[in-house]
Nucleic acid binder design. Structure first.
Length: 819
DNA sequence: AGCTGTGGCAGGGAGG
DNA sequence: CCTCCCTGCCAC
């Protein structure tokens, strides 16, 4: 096979400064007959601190008047964030960074072009090229895809093609393993630990696996591989399988020399470290790809769900299943440290437990993964990948597909950052009510549609078109959902509309995302600035119509509705009238902006911006914000604040004082209802220990208790502390002013028979929690309420709850400036 | 290898 | 004491 001349050395050209470099003349030889873009070179480009992006120069042939090939200059400086490969084998010397282009048929014509994301996908592509000669038969258009070519190839072949399918058409299998360990926790590398139970939800599959007494571990593993291959599932569903089950199984297989060959083509899974972000939380996990199958980890689906809901008690299988109502009453529960004993004494019970695990996983998956499933039907992404990646890469994949289809070069992403965010303000603090929450429906998408927002790099104008189309599709799906009779059809349409919603809401985020190919920070700022204006307009309209505005944040406002409306009809306290009043605010706002009614509450304790409590008409008390009750706070404090807020909203001040006195006495007596869990703090380690140490060395951060304890623990147990681990600890020593990181112990080291927590410190903590309520009382009343002195008895007589108005900063001052 | 954004609050350490 | 700065948690 003749080959094109090597591209000019990309490393020499301009690998690091990100500017367009000179182009070597011999590149011209690579232009194809059809005049489409051709790859000339591929080079790594350093971006930001640790980021690496590929930069690919694209060229277009111009048809010269004499028919000769000439480069079109205006497009030579475009850069591409993906690797382009010819599937004839574009690469040599991977991953050293210099790649040579070769053509398929010798005339400089790339017949097949595969766009590939990421180094891992590049590896896949090379593998794919080596393995699949059949791909040469396909027409180029079919190959303009983004994502791992191996996955794409499998996606297009046979039953893994999901287009036009429903989730029920897939053969799904749920997997769960139970392990026996001689230590406190399973250690996959330790020979004395072992897999004792493998539960597959398939009703015939598990029978062969559940009774291990006749199966040594290697045989069990081989049997499991065999069952999975026989069952041949399209999808394997697990809860936390990436971080536990698969990881553990793979390590055990390695240990025993068993090939974990569960791929459709008989291959073993390819593993790579990956991470995913859910709001502020970054989860690192060992991802694997099984050829021809999709892995759905319901643990991630649960976390993704909680980003919006924010009220899950935990992400474990049991907590999640209970939350969604999937845990049956007869469900078998087994603590992790009892598994080994139970296996010896009551294996039947353990079997039931393992089967309940897979049953719950199945229900979680059915409930939470359908939006990812429908997304694969519109995105160039396999199901498992759509469930594993964030929204920005999903949006981008749609853009890339269309740009490739149109044979257009992609823009380079902008440098910089967004500067404007949402408008937040608080107008009234204290106990108020009743209140109503009004919010602008889809604020940012509405603004982007109304104002024709379009990133500068988007030369095809895809951004507004796609946004409009997805909005229309969602509207249509919701309309059909309303008229559908069949519950099953309704559910499918709901999943569909929610997957549109995920994409629609991500458009704004991708504008301000520094790594997005189609980012545009000015446009992002335009959207948020307009959002601020509209929220202020809404606040103005509420005030004008007699409402008392309490708090506003980004796209919604809490307010006390007026007694009556303009026509003197009663509003406050009447659910329908309040809703009408709220929705009528739409009239005061520009076209394309709709105000929705999003809840009414009996009482609200307005504390600070983004921090408040709501008492519903059903007596349910909801907290928002981290300053009142955060998950990391000591439980006794959370409990105290929760109960105190309820008592304040119910105006039971005697009860409030009693609560304080009782809590104080319990702290002093070391009388903890839940043992150490009552007063331990639990924090998440966001960095590795190495990173922490390096930052401390560099003076960029100070020592803190959780990392110090993690370090001690790692030293003792020889276990690596991982990013995302949660550490529970408490404070020891004498006196309330101790330095925490020098006086702390792991919660597990506390003993009720010899309590050594720092009582003075925890009394001070209690007073810190009580201090939150100071703004709601006159100072001397506050002192009496939260005081242990009870010599003359306590009476709430004469104590009034206080509210306070907060003027928006800066406005009245400007008006008062004298000439 | 992967990763949507800004705004706001509490806790804690270090240094004045 | 106070202020500054960092991290973690949270709202939207």
């Amino acid at each position: 096979m003749p080959s094109a001349p090597p591209a000019s050395d990309p490393q020499q050209a301009d690998a690091s400064d990100g500017k367009a470099g000179e182009t070597a003349a011999e590149d011209v030889a690579l232009f194809g007959r059809d005049g489409a873009e051709r790859i000339v070179d591929v080079q790594p480009l350093l971006r930001g601190k640790h980021r690496e992006q590929a930069k690919v120069r694209l060229y277009r042939r111009s048809a010269g008047s004499d028919g000769s090939k000439q480069r079109v200059t205006e497009e030579t400086d475009e850069f591409y964030p993906f690797f382009f490969l010819s599937d004839a084998g574009l690469l040599e010397g991977f991953p050293a960074g210099r790649y040579r282009c070769e053509t398929l048929d010798g005339d400089g014509f790339f017949r097949h072009l595969v766009a590939v994301r990421s180094w891992g996908a590049l590896w896949d592509a090379v593998h794919h090229v080596e393995q699949n000669t059949g791909s040469r038969e396909r027409r180029p258009d079919e190959l303009y895809l983004v994502g791992s070519p191996v996955q794409q190839y499998l996606l297009q072949s046979g039953r893994t093609c999901l287009k036009g399918m429903e989730p029920g058409d897939l053969h799904r299998l749920q997997l769960d393993i139970e392990t026996r360990s001689t230590g406190d926790f399973p250690n996959a590398e330790r020979p004395e630990d072992e897999i004792i139970l493998v539960a597959l939800s398939d009703n015939r599959g598990w029978e062969r696996l559940l009774d291990r007494r006749h199966l040594p571990e290697p045989v069990l593993l081989e049997e499991m591989v065999q069952v999975i291959r026989e069952k041949d599932p399209d999808v394997i569903e697990t809860h936390n399988g990436f971080q536990f089950d698969f990881d553990y199984i793979r390590t055990r297989c390695q240990m025993h020399g068993v090939a974990f060959a569960v791929g459709r083509d008989g291959s073993t899974p390819r593993a790579f470290d990956s991470s995913i972000r859910f709001a502020e939380r970054v989860v690192d996990f060992p991802a694997i790809k099984i050829a021809g199958r999709h892995i759905i980890d319901t643990y991630f689906r649960v976390m993704a769900y909680d980003v919006f809901k924010r009220d899950l008690p935990g992400y474990g299988l049991k907590a999640a299943a209970t939350y969604f109502g999937f845990a049956s009453e007869e469900r078998t529960y087994v603590e992790g440290d009892q598994i080994t004993d139970l296996w010896n004494e009551d294996p039947e019970r353990l079997r039931e437990y393992a089967l309940d695990d897979v049953r719950e996983t199945r229900q979680l998956a059915a409930h939470l993964s359908s939006s990812a499933f429908y997304l694969t039907q519109m995105l160039p992404m396999p199901y498992g990948q759509a469930a594993r990646t964030g929204p920005a890469s999903k949006i981008e994949s749609m853009f890339v597909r269309e740009y490739l289809r149109e044979r257009r070069a992609m823009p380079r992403s902008q440098w910089g950052s967004q500067s404007v965010g949402g408008y937040t303000d608080i107008f009234l603090t204290g106990a108020v009510g009743p209140v109503v929450y009004a919010d602008v429906e889809s604020l940012y998408p509405s603004i982007m549609l109304a104002d024709g927002i379009q990133p500068k790099g988007d030369t095809l104008g895809l951004f507004p078109r796609l946004l409009r189309r997805l909005t229309d599709l969602r509207f249509e799906a919701k309309r059909q959902m309303k008229v559908a009779d069949d519950e099953h059809v309704k559910g499918a349409l709901d999943a569909r509309q929610s997957s549109y919603k995920i994409l629609i809401n991500s458009f704004y985020g991708s504008l301000g995302f520094s790594l997005s190919t189609f980012n545009d920070f000015e446009e992002a700022d335009k959207v948020t600035r307009r959002g601020q204006e509209l929220l202020r307009e809404m606040i103005g309209a509420i005030k004008e119509r007699g409402g008392e505005v309490i708090e506003a944040d980004t796209d919604g406002v809490f307010f006390v509705p007026p007694e009556t409306d303009a026509a003197d009809r009663p509003v406050r306290g009447d659910a329908d009238a309040e809703q009408r009043f709220t929705e009528n605010l739409t009239d005061a706002l520009p076209d394309g902006i709709r105000v929705g009614f999003d809840g009414r509450y009996r009482k609200m304790l307005s504390y600070k911006k983004k921090n408040y409590a709501l008492l519903g008409y059903d007596g349910d008390l909801k907290f928002k914000g981290s300053s009142l009750v955060a998950r990391s706070s000591e439980r006794f404090g959370r409990r105290f604040v929760r109960q105190a807020v309820r008592l304040i909203l119910e105006n039971d001040l005697e009860g409030l004082h009693d609560l304080y006195v009782e809590t104080r006495a319990a702290v002093e007596a070391s009388d903890w209802p839940e043992g150490v869990r009552s007063f331990a703090r639990t924090e998440t380690l966001k960095d590795t220990l190495q990173q922490y140490e390096a930052d401390v060395e560099a003076g960029e951060r100070t020592r803190t208790a959780p990392y110090e304890l993690a370090r001690r623990q790692a030293g003792q147990e020889g276990r690596a502390v991982r990013k995302g681990d949660r550490i529970s600890y408490y404070i020891t020593g004498q006196g309330k002013g101790v330095t925490a990181f020098k006086n702390c112990k792991l919660a597990d080291d506390w003993s009720p028979s010899a309590p050594d927590e720092n009582t003075a410190y925890y009394l001070a903590r209690l007073d810190r929690f009580a201090e939150k309520f100071a703004p709601f009382f006159e100072e001397h009343d506050f002192r009496r309420l939260f005081s242990p002195e009870d010599l003359f008895g306590f009476s709430a007589e004469g104590i009034e709850l206080q509210t306070e108005r907060h003027e928006p900063a800066g406005t009245e001052f400007d008006d008062d400036v004298p000439f």
